[in-house]
Nucleic acid binder design. Structure first.
Length: 500
RNA sequence: GGCGACGUACCCAAGUGGUUAAGGGGAGGGACUGCAAAUCCUUUACGCAUCGGUUCGAAUCCGAUCGUCGCCUCCA
């Protein structure tokens, strides 16, 4: 039996091809993280969940994964045509905004949003990265890398900073297709207009600015690093000169990743990365989501509306990462219903007295649930084929349907648990693994409606039913529904559930 | 201007040359229920934007046309 292939679209070669790791069964993966100047929105998480699914899929075929996902906590320019680097940067702007007033300085602001980000990350069942480096913790390495590029003739100093000489790297533009140097000057982020630059397309490696809110001392005086150098440096530090896979949002393809390639390959003469992944931007309710329009949801916005993190996660992966995805609240409601059905299965397994570990991996289910093994394999195969999450999710639901159909006696309950655990390891949509219950979602106290606890109402309704007073029983049920709680009758009694 | 994606049922969506076009939502019918809800069973595309072409055979390949959208600027 040949080793399974993990096929993924590669933005550089523009083909779907198997990931070829430098070391067999060992994936070195760098995924660009957020700049922490605000709460992360659901579009950010489409990208991070995609990275998470890559790690899970690779692990499912036995690969070891070194997964680096950084946090950018240095502000970078918002207006790249500002001649001097004293123009606003993202984090400084955030500090001056209404939300920013509560922070003493940019460092506090960065810490707050980074903590919030990591909390959202756990709630969304995202695997912890092997390393989560921060740009500010790697200032020395960045400065050394810039010096190195100067020594090798790929960078030069001007009165405003240090720039990468694009003409010294013939391959510049190979990822994005932006080969035309002249047209770059109008459309390039992080390009500073400076008459001393050798080419308008040259981008900043270091910006001189002794007024900047975050500044460090360098051989070129006080200032701060260019945006792209941090990723080149941290990728090399934690993953080596040549990495197997590098990913991020589609906006990062150019200039960010293009510049990373130039810096890294010019610096050490080795291929920087063998496989590039870019996640297509999310649409919301049929429209482009953007911060400037203000029509975006943060993850916590939706949690506050009562949607579970797993429902959000499922909604975000219901369409493959490289296809346009119009996120709607309807999709989110559908997803919540699916999650609730997984929860239903877990409850039944629990009631049958089983845990997730009662069926030894390595054995295959038999009897009424014997198809679960095949269904899992199909889900895994879909993921190995360029992360076809639509099919993988369909398989997960198909398996869950079989489970809900079964009476779950001892043997099948254990098999059902096996399937749900395998699916959760692959897709992370069945149950929460990382969220600390004490954090965020507080345990809900039993609700009180019209002065009585809900269980008291349930008892009263049962008594009314026993006395054939159905008008009263229905009245109670209606009142609770208006208050937002749904009743579920079963042989064991009546349960209640919050309506979303 | 450069690069790219998509057009499949009421809605989301799979499908990458070959049996009856996955799956989900919604809607209809049924079981259960005092009636509901939840759950289960069941029905729901003779057709895949349009027009040509290649082929024994195409939603799937090629060409043209129409339409929608994204990135390149803040943003993953």
């Amino acid at each position: 039996m040949s080793a399974p292939e993990f096929k993924l679209y590669d933005s550089l070669s523009r083909t779907v091809k198997p990931i070829q790791t430098v070391e067999p069964n060992q994936l070195r993966f760098y995924s660009c993280g957020p700049t922490v100047y605000s709460y992360a929105h659901i579009g950010n998480f489409r990208t991070f969940i995609t990275s998470d699914l890559i790690v899970r899929t690779a692990q499912s075929i036995g690969w070891k994964v070194t997964y680096v996902s950084n946090i950018t906590d240095v502000g970078h320019l918002t207006q790249d045509d500002v001649a001097d680097a004293s123009g606003e940067d993202k984090m400084a702007r955030a500090l001056q905004s209404k939300e920013g007033e509560e922070f003493a300085n940019v460092w506090d602001l960065a810490r707050h949003y980074a903590d919030a980000f990591e909390s959202d990350w756990r709630h969304l069942n995202l695997l912890p990265p092997s390393v989560r480096p921060r740009a500010t913790d790697h200032m020395r390495e960045q400065i050394v890398a810039v010096q190195d590029l100067i020594e090798k003739g790929h960078a030069y100093e001007t009165p405003t900073g240090v720039y990468f000489n694009v003409d010294s790297f013939a391959e510049y533009g190979k990822l994005s297709g932006n080969r035309d140097r002249e047209s770059l000057q109008v459309a390039v982020r992080d390009v500073v207009q400076d008459d001393n630059k050798k080419s308008p397309a040259d981008f900043a490696l270091w910006k001189k600015d002794d007024k900047h809110l975050m500044q460090w001392f360098s051989p070129w005086g006080w200032g701060f690093p260019g945006w792209h150098i941090e990723c080149s440096v941290m990728a090399q530090k934690y993953l080596g000169d040549t990495i197997d896979l590098h990913g991020g949002g589609e906006d990062l393809k150019f200039p960010h990743h293009e510049c990373e390639i130039a810096q890294s390959e010019a610096g050490n003469g080795k291929p920087f990365c063998n496989h590039w992944l870019h996640v297509t931007f999310l649409q919301v309710e049929g429209e482009k989501m953007s911060k400037s329009k203000g029509n975006f949801y943060t993850a916590r916005d939706l949690f506050d509306q009562g949607f579970g993190p797993l429902a959000l996660r499922l909604a975000l992966i219901s369409v493959p990462y490289n296809k346009p995805h119009n996120f709607t609240l309807q999709t989110l409601r559908d997803s919540q219903a699916h999650i609730d059905r997984f929860t239903e299965s877990l409850d039944r397994i629990g009631k049958a007295g089983f845990t997730m570990d009662d069926f030894p991996d390595g054995q295959l289910p038999e009897g009424p649930l014997s198809k679960l093994s095949e269904i899992y394999s199909e889900a895994q195969a879909a993921m190995l084929n360029d992360l076809n999450t639509s099919v993988a999710v369909a398989k997960a639901l198909e398996g869950n349907k079989l489970i809900l159909r079964d009476h779950l006696d001892g043997k099948t309950a254990a098999q059902a648990a096996w399937f749900l655990k395998k699916i959760n390891n692959l897709l992370g949509i069945v149950y929460a693994t990382f969220a600390d219950p004490s954090e965020g979602e507080e345990f809900e106290a039993e609700p009180e409606i019209n002065g009585k606890l809900i269980t008291q109402w349930i008892v009263e309704r049962s008594e009314a039913k026993a006395a054939k007073d159905f008008a009263k029983a229905d009245q109670i049920r209606n009142d609770l529904a208006v208050a937002g709680y749904e009743l579920r009758d079963s042989i064991e009694g009546t349960d209640w559930k919050k309506i979303r």
